[in-house]
């Protein structure tokens, strides 16, 4: 894996990606590149298609047109078998957690280890408990059901599940939304640590600027179905892009119009 600045093939390269649901054009020509080992954060208002973008990259949603390359391979036209190969590279933290509520916590965390890597259940269990410890959860939660956990704990279990198989590319969809600020910082730190330690490429979504600054190497802003700005995190405060300026300062006045009345 070469550095973010190198001329190597980008880990993820998206060109002219379009996706509509009925008459609603959610993605309208997204261009995005993520280098290997880079942590990119996508910011943008609610309902601007951030989750839809991630789901297109992972292959949970089929785009209407455009190109998505992972490690230089086009994925939008891939067959089922190749797609499964690519899927092994991914780990995903869903916005709502999406923990399997029919399985205890440890089996959620160990799911990929048991079902995909065919690890023995006893070994997978102790591995799961190690990973739970990394995200700050005691061994006692291992046998609880996800429904018995608080929101913050569920997010951490979800994080543990998404990093358990040590994926090359991690997606984190609003990992800190709905958490208190302290728990938010803890999760951010965990994400940074997991990404650094595993040398992974990360794509996170947030609309929390404090969180974005902690996680990101690069930031991209999505609005109106397009990436309206992208650059290193250090440049975001003086980029004189009106969209970014309005968003990071949380102003009601500006180019981004909220449709309050209709």
């Amino acid at each position: 894996m070469t550095s973010a600045a190198g001329y190597s093939v980008p880990k993820i390269q998206i060109r002219e990606l379009r996706k509509a649901f009925g008459p609603k054009q959610v993605l309208d020509g997204v261009d995005l590149e993520i280098a290997a080992g880079e942590s990119l954060v996508i910011i943008g208002g609610s309902g601007t298609g951030k989750s839809v973008l991630i789901k297109n990259i992972i292959g949970l949603i089929r785009p209407d047109s455009g190109s998505i390359m992972i490690d230089g391979r086009e994925t939008t036209t891939m067959g089922a078998a190749d797609r499964e190969d690519i899927m092994h590279k991914f780990g995903m933290l869903f916005q709502g957690g999406a923990l399997f509520d029919s399985l205890p916590v440890w089996q959620n965390v160990a799911f990929g280890l048991i079902q995909v890597q065919r690890m023995a259940r006893a070994a997978a269990r102790s591995r799961a408990i190690e990973i739970l410890a990394q995200v700050g959860l005691p061994a006692e939660v291992a046998d609880l059901s996800p429904a018995e956990l608080s929101g913050g704990m569920q997010k951490r279990v979800s994080l543990a599940r998404s990093i358990a198989t040590q994926p090359e590319i991690m997606f984190f969809d609003e990992p800190t939304t709905g958490l208190d600020p302290i728990m938010g910082s803890v999760i951010d730190a965990l994400i940074v640590k997991s990404v650094r330690e595993l040398g992974a490429t990360a794509l996170s979504i947030t609309h929390d600027m404090a969180s974005a600054r902690r996680i990101a190497d690069h930031i991209a802003m999505i609005h109106g179905g397009k990436i309206v700005w992208s650059g290193p995190v250090s440049e975001i405060d003086h980029c004189d892009n009106p969209y970014v300026d309005q968003f990071i300062n949380g102003r009601a006045e500006g180019p981004i119009q909220m449709q309050v009345k209709r």
Partner: peptide, 15 residues
Amino acid sequence: MRVTEQIDALTTLST
């Protein structure tokens, strides 16, 4: 499982 994205989560876990 569908509406809480657990089915999507299965897919991302290569299952």
